[in-house]
Write a protein that binds this DNA or RNA. Structure first.
Length: 576
RNA sequence: GGUCCUGUAGUUAAAUGGAUAUAACGGGUCCCUCCUAAGGAUCAGAUGCAGGUUCGAUUCCUGCCGGGAUCACCA
């Protein structure tokens, strides 16, 4: 029930009819036609730019066309109470009260389903987090994790089928180093040999000690003398334990993946080899050299011949290596195999949610998917920019080497899930986010999380005071449906909800939802405060509702707030 | 140097190519102490620079200036 898209279609058809009637000329396409909310202080419920779009081809002033359209529109649509022509030629259409009464009735029936736009249904695969299984998640992973989760919520809400996936890189060099780190910790405990200090790349977080202890205590392995012999077993256990930590972290953020795909499995099933073969058959693989990196840090580069994928044919900057120096597969080769695996599972659209540090990877993986699927499978990569942690206004830097970074666990313990999710989502994922511990935990109106939650709690409180159940059906047969300007503004805002959902989903920009909810909450709070000056604006007098219309508006707000908060995975307490 | 992201009031942000650029905090002035403590009214204040496309540009394109990320092997 998106009135903007409904009237887009209706007015489009109206214009086509008008052309058949030879009253106007139409341009080739009407794509530039828009229906949107007029600016706040202007009259009208929806605004249409038809006159502006048609001005040139008709060789007339926008205003003259607007006058022509106005008279015809009023004749054609009985629900249009009035049309105001605003400079330079916008048609601001006001609906009659019957229309809004029907609108609210529909919303009451749809409840929390209101806002779902399910015209096109697809099968999606959303890959997100995919952090190395070498330790718990830290704050840096958080934003992408929540972004991925909410993108899947949006897609599901709109009737799509979505698989949430985590790609586990349990095969590369980092895994070797991690396993070795666990081993050193075991030896440290059992044989009192100090954990090596000079090897900088070892994992030295406290959790490595915990994993070591667990392996010893539970006697998961008994002999530790020969590292080579126990390596495979030790690796499997270490990764399993580490993945458990990650799953606990994800759970505390309210995130659960449907599928974990292991790189090692792709390797065992020969999928990497087969994928490279597939590319070879397409003549997209060759032995060649790539130039030295321009990065100033890199001094160890040695030029050599290696197996390369011709990603430049698909818009990448250079061809990408598939094999390392020792002829083992690169991470990229494994990821190509993983994407080939996804392609074989016949998803319509693949989505990868990446951190800013992996943005440079997008072109090559896009190239890979295009090549492997013959351009049939769509891949869309969303990047979430960095989170800057602030404590008392000061930048807080994390160092992985020292092991002193803030984990998701720390974050949730200190701040709580709701504020973390809300704040992480409140900015466009294309911009850096300041995350200030102090501000985020403040329970004041300046904190948008509580401001929105408080709106829901206040509505609950009204129904509680009336001994009514918020979820009970109300029949909307009020004869005198009158609304004041605040109520009208709220209803207009409610009418915008499906549009907000549809844009958020199409563009995969969930930050629009917290922004919308905050705006709706603002309107609600000022509506509530009307009752301060004037008792007749209160919802309750003498323990009875002052009007059914008011209750219904409150109910409709509650549905939208609840549904929006569900989508972003934030709670709506009944009391605060 | 290449690539990607980014530049909006004093600050933090918003704006599927729309109208007088929207809010919050902070600042000025005035009111209020209540169905929930977290209130209301009002004033001042901004699109980095230069072009282009468009009826219309914060938004799209080009160049410049600034901030961030990234650029063999790692993941």
């Amino acid at each position: 029930m998106n009135i903007f898209s409904i009237y887009f279609e209706k007015i489009k058809k109206f214009l086509i009819d008008l052309e058949k009637d030879k009253q106007i000329k139409l341009s080739d396409n009407l794509n530039k036609l828009t229906i949107e909310l007029p600016p706040k202080d202007l009259q009208g419920d929806i605004s249409c730019n038809a006159a502006l779009v048609l001005s040139k081809i008709n060789n007339k002033k926008p205003k003259d066309i607007a006058i022509l359209l106005k008279t015809n529109l009023i004749k054609k649509f009985p629900e249009f109470k009035n049309i105001f022509i605003a400079e330079p030629g916008f048609l601001n259409i006001e609906f009659n009260e019957d229309f809004w009464q029907k609108f609210l009735t529909n919303l009451l029936n749809l409840k929390e389903e209101y806002g779902s736009n399910s015209s096109i249904k697809n099968r999606y695969n959303v890959e997100f987090v995919s952090a190395n299984p070498t330790g718990p998640l830290h704050v840096g992973h958080c934003r992408g994790a929540i972004l991925g989760d909410v993108i899947t919520n949006l897609l599901t809400f709109n009737g799509n089928e979505v698989s949430k996936e985590y790609y586990v890189n349990d095969h590369g060099n980092q895994v070797k180093i991690f396993t070795l780190s666990v081993y050193y910790r075991i030896i440290e405990i059992l044989q009192n040999k100090e954990f090596p200090k000079n090897q900088e790349d070892l994992y030295r977080g406290e959790y490595v000690v915990d994993i070591a202890k667990k392996i010893i205590d539970k006697k998961l392995i008994n002999q530790f003398n020969n590292y080579e012999n126990i390596y495979e077993q030790l690796k499997d256990i270490s990764i399993k334990e580490s993945l458990e930590l990650i799953k606990i972290n994800l759970n505390s953020l309210g995130i659960q993946h449907d599928h974990f795909v292991f790189e090692s499995q792709l390797f065992k099933n020969n999928e990497i080899k087969n994928t490279v073969e597939k590319l070879k058959k397409k003549d997209l693989v060759y032995q060649g050299k790539i130039e030295a990196p321009k990065s100033k840090k890199e001094k160890n580069y040695k030029e050599r011949k290696q197996l390369l994928f011709k990603s430049t044919l698909y818009g990448d900057d250079k061809d990408r290596p598939l094999q390392k120096d020792d002829l083992s597969w690169t991470y990229f080769a494994g990821d190509l195999a993983y994407h080939n695996n996804k392609i074989n599972r016949n998803f319509d659209i693949l989505i990868n949610v990446l951190g800013a540090d992996h943005a440079g990877y997008i072109k090559r993986i896009n190239a890979g998917v295009e090549a492997l699927s013959n351009k049939k499978t769509k891949l869309s990569c969303k990047v979430s920019q960095l989170v800057k942690l602030l404590k008392d206004g000061k930048l807080f830097k994390m160092s992985k080497r020292k092991g002193d970074y803030i984990t998701v666990e720390d974050l949730i313990n200190e701040v709580g899930r709701d504020p973390v999710r809300f704040i992480m989502l409140s900015r466009s994922n294309d911009v850096e986010l300041d995350f200030d511990f102090k501000k985020v935990t403040e329970k004041t109106k300046d904190n948008p999380v509580y401001y929105v939650q408080y709106c829901y709690a206040r509505i609950c409180s009204v129904f509680r005071n009336l001994n009514l159940d918020l979820n009970e059906e109300i029949n909307f047969d009020e004869k005198k449906f009158h609304i004041n300007s605040n109520e009208r503004q709220i209803i207009k805002k409610l009418s915008e909800w499906p549009k907000c959902i549809s844009i958020s989903t199409q563009r995969m920009e969930p930050h629009r939802i917290p922004v919308y909810l905050y705006e709706l909450a603002t309107l609600f709070h000022s509506y509530w405060n009307l009752g301060k000056d004037n008792i007749s604006f209160r919802f309750i007098s003498d323990n009875k509702p002052t009007s059914l219309t008011k209750l219904i508006i409150l109910k409709c707000i509650s549905y939208v707030v609840k549904s929006g908060m569900n989508l972003i995975g934030v709670n709506t307490p009944n009391k605060m």
